[in-house]
Design a protein around this nucleic acid. Structure first.
Lengths: 197, 197
DNA sequence: TGTACATCAGTGAACGCGCGTTCACTGATGTAC
DNA sequence: TGTACATCAGTGAACGCGCGTTCACTGATGTAC
């Protein structure tokens, strides 16, 4: 029962990873409805039923996709966090979060919307790991009694900003505009005092 | 070319409205994938193609659904706004917005996610009318140079809070818990000074 | 080093499904005279 | 008041589609001896 999906050169290469790649491509090109097991197989150059050797059903593939997205988003946040300068942390984290949402709209929706996301434990764990990056900074900056509310508020703010942007509810097209808007909005909402201490 | 959909008693009643009602029911019971023209017709007790007498295609039905939701949400906001006491406005508006999202998850997603929402002018107008309720309060409370950022921030905050809640990312089940959480989070994020003047 | 065999990744035909949409129709309503 | 007719809401058969999933299979890989 090996769970390794990397490396290899099986029969026809690493089909498990190829399915993920194919599904990500379909997701970036359209929406979630664009991702069918048959389309994934087609794009991976394989028969319609080959993916069943690696995923028990369609929801498993989607869950794997969401897990991948959560891990990628977490990495973005960690990287951004590492480059933050004092006083900058929340803006930088927010920019990373929003940038990811805008760059991968369909995947972002899948990560947060889809039912399989909640039922799959691995996916749920990867989702929890995302918020921990933010929670760590909040713990540093906010006194214990306000931590929970502040944490949820920050998350809601960036999540909402990302959602509104990727659904075209705000006028910001380029990544730079998105980053500027995020900085302005987050600064305004958090105030100059940053709610710290 | 009468656009009236109310009143009546046609051949078999007001099928236009019946389709909307049926579609809303399907939406509340499941997700957007649950709404097919055929299912709508079935639930309205009518042949599979009867809805085509009232909607040129499926997207038109969905757009009408989204328009309905936007109008309903706007009414909730206006009503909440009218009951607000001084200093309370943003919390009360936020509670109304979040409560609507949580009460109508699938419709809320449709209103903000779906592509037909943007291409249909009537739907787009009804969506714009929603934010105007919030914008009016922001204009009263915030100096001009911070209005836009504050407006977007508030919207993102409540939209994000609603999204996270309806996707089960936060632990709040009952309407009361949702209202309390919303109050706490919004108060924390806006601070005690309310950013006014 | 060479043969026999188990494993299991990938195949391809087939299933039943519900979908959106078209088309020619039917039959009730309401108007013109 | 009564008949002829236009309108048009609703019908039902039919289309072609892609889907998720099953099943018995095939054929390459890798191990045991």
């Amino acid at each position: 029962v090996s769970t390794s999906s990397a490396g290899g050169g099986y029969h026809h290469g690493d089909l498990r990873a190829a399915c993920l790649t194919a599904a990500l491509g379909l997701l970036e090109e359209g929406d979630q409805a664009n991702v069918s097991l048959r389309a994934v197989a087609r794009r991976a150059g394989v028969s319609p039923t080959a993916p069943y050797r690696h995923y028990p059903d369609k929801d498993s593939l989607l869950a794997a996709l969401a897990t991948h997205g959560n891990e990628e988003l977490r990495e973005c946040l960690v990287k951004a966090d590492a480059t933050a300068t004092p006083g900058d942390e929340f803006v930088v984290l927010a920019q990373a979060y929003v940038a990811y949402a805008v760059a991968h709209p369909a995947l972002f929706r899948l990560m947060f919307d889809h039912a399989c996301t909640k039922s799959n434990p691995e996916t749920a764990a990867s989702a929890a790991a995302v918020t921990e990056v933010l929670a760590a900074r909040v713990s540093e900056a906010v006194p214990p009694e306000r931590r929970q509310a502040f944490m949820i508020g920050c998350w809601a703010l960036v999540h909402g900003l990302g959602s509104l942007l990727l659904n075209g509810k705000l006028n910001s097209s380029s990544p730079d505009e998105v980053a500027d808007l995020t900085r302005t909005v987050v600064s305004t909402m958090l105030g100059s005092t940053n709610h710290a201490h």
